[in-house]
Amino acid sequence: MGLLSPQDEAVLKQHLSAITKPVTLLLFTQTFGGSESGTVAKAILGEIAALNDKVAVVEKNFVLDTEDKAKYRVDKAPAIVILSDGDDTRMRMYGAPTGYEFVGLVEAILVAGTGKIDLDPQTLAWIQAVDKPLHLQVFSTPT
């Protein structure tokens, strides 16, 4: 029995069918001294990837894979780095993607896999005009 119900899987599969570009989910976990949420994150990502062959999960060790950790500027685990056709989308998720976080993860995968950004043209223009680094951290809880 997976974490997703058969009904959820069917709906998710339908959404993911819009993907045209390969999406890689880099999952950084810490085996020793890490939290249970790394195991939960791995299970969830595995179930998503099983629904679409353009979505792949690559596991990284938060302690040992120092090169990738530095490359993607990952400073805590569990972390999910979302790549679109191998390129960093600069979208990260920290912690297990359950509850509301799961919806955010699926939306991020769809943006990475379709290249489509569902924003109002005016808002998009404002964002594209930003000419200095901007780091957003959005805190949420599963429920």
Partner: peptide, 28 residues
């Protein structure tokens, strides 16, 4: 926002998992 501009990085942080950050940024 991150997808629309290479200068933008967006992190979604599960607040209960990273209590140090939750305290640091006074997430109430």
């Amino acid at each position: 926002m991150a997808a629309a501009n290479p200068l933008i990085t967006a992190d979604a942080v599960e607040a209960t998992e990273f209590m140090d950050l939750t305290r640091k940024y006074r997430v109430t």
